[in-house]
Write a protein that binds this DNA or RNA. Structure first.
Lengths: 344, 344
DNA sequence: CTACTTTTGCTCATTTTGAGCAAAAGACCG
DNA sequence: CGGTCTTTTGCTCAAAATGAGCAAAAGTAG
């Protein structure tokens, strides 16, 4: 990615740019992946060596809208064709309270985007990485992730017991404990897969993610270097926060808009569709009910062809019914996670 | 509002500013109102005389985040204290394809915000206006608004029958008709109150709102001057689009987050709560079911006091239970509009 | 031909939703 | 003071949606 070389000048004569950051998502064999930019440096604890989301400057003179600008440089830099694109959030401060000492230019505005693709072309310096590498606590498909009880909860409880900085307008100790219990202390039944962002922000506040230490948060718990348990891979700037926002939004949207299909091939079996949905949600759903839902909602239609790659009884191949857009107001998968252990 | 006097310079030496626009909402006796800025000019068809949303520049050197910046100038200019504040969307082009000939400065980025308040201080030049003055077709509380069948549908059908500009990547005639029928041609049963933005954008595309003509849309239907039926009051720049976004977001949010209470007094009767919700949704809901919902969700608690202002049996006064934040993941009112005529 | 795997069709209890009936508790009015 | 009117409040009930399990169908692998 060109390091935002050209741009406007502010009154201190520093370049001012509007950066468009994209969380580009695909699903490859059961894993939701995002396109990450891997800097050439290799020192693992050096913030510039952390992964970044692909980003590019927005030039209002070249592109009419930001959406168009985004599509343009993504197309240019990767050979990816983006399907669905959605704006997420605009931050005025890239690295929060950060000093950003390593950033020679002063960014002013960074706009986060979610984009869905079926995958394809990449470039060097970029790689597809499971988003659960950045958020290991978000994948509940094999039950509650061990990292929660083994690492996260103990550290969060320690943080909740500490006295909050009286200077900040922050929660009292009791409220801290409540919040921790509420957000992470769940045993599956009441896990809310949509609140990815809230969980990340809690960890940031508690100083448990690397970015917090980088930004000089006072209460950052001193996690030692590479030997210590990392709470997921860190990212440059606020990119991990943008990714969290993208995950939240996508997990929510799944339930009321037919966006999964942007990630599927033209034809697919219902089980493939289910696996993709589950990968995104980080949860298992009840198989028979999933089919009932999808078919009753009229989201798919049979192609007549069969898939034999299943290993068991061959599965019918389906395709997405585009007509739903003009039929129903809010088509989507109102997925309900199964309470019992996986029923696949 | 200071007309964005200071700011950054772009490479053409025109001021570049980041504008924060706020749709500030309150509900006053059954009417959802927004704070509108009324320019001094009075020529009704002059774009600068149209209403505007209050806005102010964002100065990244003065305020750490845009949210803080917004709160700051709102506080400064009005005496309003904002409760809930939420970022909506960021546009790179203020007036879309607009020429913006009347705007001597080139705005680059405009960020839309939704803010809720209980009302209070105003300033001169600003007034509270029902948002249904801008969107008369969105209030279904007294049945389907007459303007839809009398004005909107005929004009939209005419538009759908016209040949789309082959240059644009636009929908075919058949799809146009489908879309019109789908979005506006409903008879109450399948009216989706959340798609305010989609409806406004359709009217804009079809050239039926003043802003379309101002922006020089090719297919803008020449609505005569003041005698012609206006499809709601127009607004400056893209402010009406921002307002539509705010309405969509608020109507949706109502159902899964306890945001209504930001608009209520400390204590209220359940019927007052219902009326506020209905005002926002532009729909009537079933009274008994509304109470069941609210109480079962544990959103409120009795105060013991009574309200006698009802005219009938006195109503219990309730207050919002703040504890829900730490109890349930997604508290809100999953309101279902009543199919039958009002049952109040 | 037999075991195994996966798809697919169906049932069933429980909950949620949409809608209506009627008693309770005040104000208003003669 | 008794009757009428209005609104709140409590309750019932059918229909639909949801969560979960059973079992036949149709292949593959040995």
């Amino acid at each position: 990615m060109p390091p935002a070389s050209k741009g406007h000048l502010d009154r201190h004569n520093k370049p001012v740019v509007i950066d468009l950051n994209a969380a580009i998502v695909r699903v490859a064999d059961g894993s939701p992946e995002i396109l990450a930019v891997r800097p050439s440096g290799t020192e693992d604890d050096d913030p510039v060596a952390w992964d970044a989301l692909p980003f590019g400057p927005f030039d209002p003179l070249k592109h009419r809208t930001m959406d168009i600008g985004l599509r343009s440089w993504v197309q240019e830099q990767t050979q990816l064709s983006l399907g669905y694109v959605e704006q997420l959030y605009t931050f005025g401060d890239r690295g929060r309270h950060a000093l950003e000492v390593l950033d020679e230019i002063e960014h002013i505005v960074s706009v986060g985007y979610l984009a869905l693709t079926r995958g394809g072309g990449e470039r060097d310096g970029a790689l597809w990485r499971s988003w659960y590498q950045y958020f290991p606590w978000e994948d509940w498909r094999d039950g509650k992730p061990a990292i929660i009880d083994r690492v996260i909860m103990p550290l969060l409880k320690e943080w909740a017991a500490r006295k909050p900085d009286p200077a900040s307008d922050e929660l009292s100790r009791g409220r801290r404990a409540d919040r921790v219990q509420f957000i992470f202390g769940t045993d599956g039944g009441n896990w809310d897969e949509e609140t990815v962002l809230e969980r990340y922000e809690l960890l940031y506040e508690a100083g448990l993610v690397r970015e917090a230490a980088r930004d000089g948060r006072s209460n950052a718990i001193a996690l030692g270097r590479s030997t210590d348990p990392q709470l997921g891979l860190p990212m440059q700037h606020d990119h991990r926060r943008i990714l969290a926002t993208a995950m939240s939004r996508l997990r929510a949207k799944l339930k009321y808009r037919p966006v999964v299909f942007e990630l599927m091939d033209d034809t697919f079996t219902l089980y493939e569709l289910q696996c993709t949905s589950e990968a995104l949600l980080g949860l298992h759903v009840h198989k028979q009910n999933f089919r009932r839902l999808v078919e009753k909602a009229g989201l798919v239609e049979k192609t007549g062809r069969m898939s034999t790659r299943t290993g068991g009884r061959p599965a019918e191949l389906f395709r997405f019914r585009r007509e739903v857009f003009s039929e129903r107001p809010a088509p989507g998968l109102k997925l309900a996670p199964s309470r019992t252990r996986a029923n696949t």
